[in-house]
Amino acid sequence: MSSSNPDNVEEHSWSTGLCGCFDDVKSCCITFWCPCITFGHISEILDKGETSCVMNCAIYMLIYCLTSCACLYSCCYRTKLRQEFRLKEDPCNDCLVHFCCMPCALCQEYREPKNRGYNVEKGWEGNARQHSEVAMAPKVEGGMKR
């Protein structure tokens, strides 16, 4: 167990590797040209709709334009994603992964919820609506009869 796992909860491997861009070329291209979009999608899902994709995208761009260190913001969401899905801190510390290879890290983080059944592009509300429709029993007209 890693030092970032104080509760000794079993940690799992990521569904794809850090350099698994061939699994999803579309998201890799978007991330390469405009990483704030990918970050916005990831953060909205992880924040469970409390913040919007657009707002997080704007914050990311503002930090990037003012400091060129958006990795300090985005690495926090990598940690949040790992905790949410109980993932190993792999291949190294979250901040170091984002500092050295932020596009690859964002792509991997985008693929993880996608591989777990989320449609990341729909955002939190779209996924919540989809999952509630699946979980709800069909409505019976006129009540139950024998």
Rank of each mutant, 00 (worst) to 15 (best):
117 G>C: 02
133 E>R: 08
66 L>N: 06
106 L>Q: 01
11 E>H: 04
3 S>Q: 08
120 V>L: 00
146 R>Y: 05
91 P>S: 15
90 D>M: 11
125 E>L: 05
14 W>I: 04
16 T>C: 09
31 T>A: 02
91 P>R: 12
96 L>M: 14
1 M>N: 00
71 C>E: 06
123 G>L: 02
36 C>P: 08
28 C>L: 02
7 D>Q: 05
59 I>F: 06
132 S>D: 08
115 N>S: 06
42 I>L: 11
78 R>T: 13
68 S>H: 15
39 F>L: 02
117 G>H: 04
22 F>A: 11
90 D>E: 14
57 C>Y: 06
25 V>K: 07
79 T>R: 14
78 R>V: 14
24 D>T: 09
70 A>H: 08
60 Y>M: 01
40 G>V: 04
46 L>C: 12
138 P>I: 12
26 K>G: 14
33 W>I: 08
105 A>E: 01
121 E>D: 05
44 E>V: 13
122 K>G: 00
67 T>C: 09
117 G>M: 01
108 Q>D: 03
69 C>Q: 12
21 C>V: 09
17 G>Y: 03
111 R>S: 06
68 S>V: 13
100 C>E: 02
27 S>M: 02
113 P>R: 06
35 P>I: 12
63 I>V: 15
70 A>V: 14
52 S>P: 05
104 C>D: 07
22 F>Q: 03
75 C>R: 12
26 K>S: 14
138 P>A: 09
112 E>N: 07
33 W>H: 03
116 R>A: 00
76 C>G: 15
14 W>Q: 06
80 K>C: 12
87 L>E: 04
29 C>T: 14
124 W>Y: 01
81 L>F: 15
76 C>D: 07
129 R>V: 15
129 R>C: 13
112 E>R: 01
82 R>W: 08
19 C>L: 15
141 E>K: 05
29 C>I: 13
12 H>M: 00
74 S>T: 11
118 Y>H: 04
111 R>K: 04
96 L>W: 14
31 T>E: 08
138 P>G: 03
83 Q>H: 15
79 T>M: 10
24 D>I: 00
130 Q>Y: 08
27 S>Y: 00
99 F>Q: 09
48 K>M: 04
137 A>R: 09
112 E>I: 01
98 H>F: 01
143 G>P: 02
45 I>R: 03
146 R>H: 11
98 H>E: 13
132 S>I: 00
56 N>E: 10
15 S>K: 01
125 E>D: 08
46 L>K: 05
23 D>Y: 07
92 C>L: 09
106 L>A: 10
121 E>T: 11
46 L>Q: 09
131 H>I: 11
61 M>D: 05
28 C>T: 01
139 K>W: 09
96 L>Y: 11
97 V>A: 15
96 L>N: 05
10 E>V: 08
126 G>M: 04
